Simulated scan of single mutants.
Amino acid sequence: MKALQITQYGDIDSSLAFQELDVLEPGAGEVLIKIHAAAINPVDLMVMRGDLKAVKKLNLPVGIGRDLSGEVVSVGSGVSKYQIGDAVFARVGEDHVGTVAQCLVVDASHLAKKPENLSHEESASVPLVGLTSYQALIQVAGLKKGEKVLIHAGSGGIGSVAIQLAKAYGAYVITTTSSDNVEWVRKLGADQVIDYKKENYLELLSGIDVVYDTLGNQYTKEAFKVLKQGGRVVSIAGVLDPQSARELGINWLLRKLIRLRSGPILKLAKQKNALYRMVIMQPNGDQLLELAALYQDKILSPVIDKIYPFEQSIAAFSHLNTKRAKGKVVISVGGST
């Protein structure tokens, strides 16, 4: 079978190449998927460039891509939830990365049956961004009906899903975006849209219940300027906090360094009697099934910027790298249903 792989660390043109690989048999608790579509994400580019080598150095060549939608081809021992022919989607675990391929073995616990009303391309656009925002806003922040939530970068892959999810849970949604996307994100459900090219959100906002920090750097610190006393800041781009480090199983020595690095942010949180958590998304088939129901009931809608054919996968990564995509960039690997 054919798969796109990272052959060396570097830029897109020098690092990515198609390879012919053997099709693996699923082991215990695993499922072999015929992939119909894969979505790509900024984290894929970070891994390709070597930005995360300090966390995990790859034994190259390796696959690329973490989102898929496809069809069950065979199941390993101990798998009873899925049968051959089932249409499924997933954000695969880090041990099974490589969704830009014709087939892939994945952990069955990371799968969910795809929404029947979505194509494979639409379904592939959901898992990573959907689970990330679900775990940040619902699981960690505990977003409630009527609360005010600030979501930065509303037109991106994460933001476009987060706006819809927050509205589905009854929140008052505020988002930031550029002038070109103001009306577009308002149609996604945002109650208040701040054009960062013309307005300073710090001068307009206060008393926010939840800040969803998708940008990091100064935005993480600025979150506490608009947050109300006792509010919550959940970040996917800021500094790792000690509790999240402990839950990830990071050793005690690194946790000490993390505590030192996160000190300034934790101090700001203490001054506001606020929660600060860095959310690192974990694959979760049960949560994905909850999201699937929201898409099935048309409470949420997939947001796709562009779909590329499999043979143009490298061009898809180049487009993602422009950082101008409105929604997700998807690769169509096979026929959709």
Results as ranks from 00 to 15, higher is better:
residue 306 K to Y: 13
residue 19 Q to H: 13
residue 256 K to F: 06
residue 216 G to H: 05
residue 248 L to I: 10
residue 251 N to G: 06
residue 119 S to M: 07
residue 288 L to V: 07
residue 143 L to Y: 02
residue 105 V to I: 13
residue 192 Q to A: 14
residue 269 A to Q: 01
residue 47 V to I: 15
residue 262 S to K: 00
residue 269 A to M: 02
residue 247 E to P: 05
residue 260 L to T: 00
residue 62 V to H: 12
residue 205 L to P: 09
residue 272 K to A: 00
residue 136 A to D: 00
residue 45 L to A: 05
residue 254 L to H: 13
residue 191 D to E: 13
residue 10 G to F: 15
residue 131 L to A: 01
residue 20 E to I: 07
residue 110 H to Y: 15
residue 220 T to H: 00
residue 130 G to C: 02
residue 193 V to E: 12
residue 19 Q to Y: 05
residue 225 K to V: 01
residue 85 G to Q: 01
residue 57 K to H: 15
residue 169 Y to Q: 06
residue 202 L to Y: 01
residue 6 I to S: 14
residue 325 A to G: 04
residue 246 R to W: 11
residue 297 D to M: 04
residue 135 Q to L: 04
residue 50 G to S: 11
residue 307 I to D: 08
residue 33 I to S: 09
residue 25 E to F: 08
residue 333 V to F: 12
residue 82 Y to F: 15
residue 54 A to Y: 08
residue 28 A to S: 08
residue 239 V to Q: 09
residue 195 D to Q: 12
residue 319 H to E: 10
residue 218 Q to G: 01
residue 246 R to Y: 13
residue 177 T to N: 09
residue 11 D to N: 15
residue 206 S to L: 01
residue 280 I to H: 11
residue 96 H to C: 11
residue 238 G to L: 05
residue 70 G to T: 11
residue 45 L to D: 06
residue 176 T to C: 09
residue 146 G to Y: 03
residue 295 Y to A: 02
residue 17 A to K: 13
residue 268 L to N: 05
residue 241 D to F: 07
residue 124 A to R: 11
residue 175 T to R: 09
residue 123 S to F: 04
residue 180 D to C: 06
residue 268 L to H: 06
residue 267 K to W: 12
residue 152 H to K: 04
residue 172 Y to M: 06
residue 289 L to Y: 12
residue 315 A to N: 08
residue 281 M to I: 10
residue 171 A to Q: 04
residue 113 K to L: 12
residue 197 K to D: 07
residue 47 V to G: 09
residue 185 V to L: 09
residue 218 Q to A: 15
residue 214 T to S: 14
residue 77 S to T: 09
residue 164 Q to S: 13
residue 115 P to Q: 08
residue 279 V to C: 11
residue 211 V to A: 00
residue 268 L to A: 08
residue 90 A to L: 12
residue 123 S to P: 10
residue 252 W to C: 07
residue 172 Y to G: 00
residue 143 L to W: 02
residue 45 L to I: 12
residue 300 L to V: 05
residue 41 N to P: 06
residue 18 F to Y: 14
residue 298 K to A: 13
residue 75 V to S: 05
residue 169 Y to V: 07
residue 228 K to G: 03
residue 304 I to R: 05
residue 224 F to R: 00
residue 142 G to L: 00
residue 314 I to A: 02
residue 49 R to T: 09
residue 213 D to I: 02
residue 256 K to H: 04
residue 217 N to I: 12
residue 190 A to M: 14
residue 37 A to H: 11
residue 71 E to Q: 14
residue 6 I to C: 13
residue 141 A to I: 02
residue 263 G to E: 10
residue 280 I to K: 09
residue 311 E to M: 07
residue 78 G to R: 03
residue 187 K to Q: 15
residue 203 E to W: 03
residue 81 K to R: 15
residue 40 I to F: 06
residue 278 M to W: 12
residue 252 W to N: 10
residue 33 I to G: 10
residue 83 Q to A: 13
residue 329 V to R: 03
residue 28 A to M: 07
residue 211 V to D: 00
residue 282 Q to M: 13
residue 175 T to D: 06
residue 291 L to Y: 02
residue 242 P to N: 10
residue 159 G to A: 04
residue 278 M to V: 11
residue 107 D to R: 14
residue 180 D to T: 10
residue 17 A to S: 12
residue 108 A to F: 06
residue 225 K to C: 04
residue 31 V to I: 11
residue 300 L to D: 07
residue 70 G to A: 10
